[in-house]
C-alpha cells in the first residue's frame, strides 16, 4: 500500500478530510467572532453559548413544534439573532466606550448564565438529534467512507464564509459598516443610522454561531457544554488569524482543523493542545496574527 510518513495513504487522506470538517466549524465560529470584534470591538465570550443555543433551538423546534432540520437551519439563527439584538441593545451597547475587559466580563457572564440555565433544565448528557433523511448514508470516496452529512457541513460552511466575506468586503453595506467602525460620527453625518448598523452586525455574528450550532446538532451530542468545548479553540483561531480579520479567521479555521486532525494520528494526546502551541509560535513571530495589521 502507498504510505505517507509511515501511515497508509487512505488513512492520511481520511484524516485530512476530517480535519477540514472540524475546520469548517472553527471557521464559522471564528468568523462570527471576528466580525463582532472587528466592527464592535467586543470580545464576545458568549459565542460558544450562542452556538449551543443554536443547536438547542433546532432541537426544541423539532421536539415541541415538529419543525425539521432544513427550516431550523434558517429559523434557529433568526431566533438566536433576535436574542442577540436584545442583548446588544440592553447590555453590550453600554460598554463600547469602555475597556475591552468589560465586554469580555459581560459576555463571559452571559455565557455562564445561558449554559447554567440549559444545564439545569436539560442535564449534561444531551438530546438526540437525527441527521436529516436526505443526508443520511455515506459515499465511498475510495480512500474513505464519507458520511454525506459531513460533506454537507463543509459545503455549507464554506458557502456561508464566502457570503459573509463578500458582504463585508465587496458590497456597499459592508463598506458603510467598515467606514462606521473607522469613524462613526462622520458616517452618521451622512445620514446612516450607525447604532442600528452595529446592532445588526452583532445579530449577524451571533446568527453565524447559531447556524454552526444547527450544523453541529446531528453530529455532536446536543448538550449544554458543547459550546464551552469549542470556544477556547475558536479564540485561539481568531488570535492566530489576527483579531478582527475576516479572511484570516476563515483560512486559519480550516488550516488549524487540518493541523489538529493530523495530530490526532501522530500523537493523539496532544490534539487538544496543538492549536495553542501554534498560537504561541505565531504570537512570538507575528504578534498581530497571520493576517492582522499591526495597530
Amino acid at each position: 500500500m502507498f504510505m505517507i510518513l509511515g501511515y497508509p495513504a487512505p488513512l492520511m487522506f481520511g484524516q485530512l478530510l476530517l480535519g477540514l470538517i472540524n475546520g469548517a466549524f472553527y471557521a464559522l465560529l471564528s468568523l462570527g467572532l471576528a466580525v463582532i470584534f472587528g466592527m464592535l470591538n467586543i470580545v464576545n465570550f458568549a459565542h460558544g453559548a450562542l452556538f449551543m443555543l443554536g443547536a438547542f433551538v433546532a432541537w426544541g423546534l423539532l421536539e415541541y413544534l415538529g419543525i425539521g432540520y432544513w427550516v431550523a437551519l434558517f429559523l434557529a439563527p433568526l431566533i438566536v439573532g433576535v436574542f442577540g439584538v436584545l442583548t446588544e441593545k440592553l447590555l453590550i451597547r453600554h460598554l463600547y466606550k469602555l475597556d475591552h475587559l468589560y465586554g469580555l466580563l459581560l459576555t463571559f457572564g452571559l455565557a455562564l448564565i445561558i449554559e447554567g440555565l440549559a444545564r439545569n433544565q436539560y442535564g449534561s448528557s444531551g438530546m438526540p438529534y437525527r441527521i436529516p433523511a436526505a443526508l443520511q448514508g455515506a459515499t465511498d470516496l475510495g480512500f474513505m467512507f464519507l458520511p454525506n452529512y459531513r460533506g454537507w457541513v463543509v459545503l455549507a460552511a464554506a458557502v456561508m464564509c464566502l457570503i459573509t466575506w463578500l458582504v463585508i468586503e465587496k458590497t456597499s453595506v459592508g463598506a458603510t459598516l467598515r467606514a462606521a467602525t473607522e469613524n462613526a460620527p462622520l458616517v452618521q453625518a451622512f445620514g446612516v443610522n450607525v447604532p442600528r448598523l452595529i446592532t445588526l452586525t452583532y445579530a449577524g455574528g451571533v446568527a453565524l454561531a447559531a447556524f454552526a450550532g444547527v450544523l453541529a446538532a446531528p453530529i455532536y451530542s446536543v448538550n449544554p457544554n458543547m459550546g464551552a468545548n469549542f470556544i477556547i479553540v475558536v479564540f485561539a483561531v481568531v488570535v492566530i488569524g489576527g483579531m478582527g480579520s475576516i479572511l484570516g479567521s476563515i483560512v486559519t479555521g480550516f488550516g488549524l482543523g487540518i493541523i489538529e486532525g493530523l495530530t490526532k494520528v501522530f500523537y493523539p494526546q496532544a490534539s487538544a493542545t496543538v492549536i495553542f502551541l501554534v498560537m504561541v509560535i505565531v504570537l512570538l513571530a507575528r504578534p498581530a496574527g497571520l493576517f492582522g495589521k499591526a495597530a
Binding site: P8, I21, R150, K264, P268, Q269, S271, A272, T273
Partner: peptide
C-alpha cells in the same frame, strides 16, 4: 489504541477511522 484528551474532545471520527484501519 489511542488516548484522547479529557475533557474537551468532541470529535472522535478521526480516532474511529484509526480503529477501523
Amino acid at each position: 489504541g489511542v488516548r484522547t484528551p479529557f475533557p474537551g474532545t468532541t470529535d472522535f471520527s478521526s480516532f474511529l477511522l484509526q480503529a477501523q484501519s
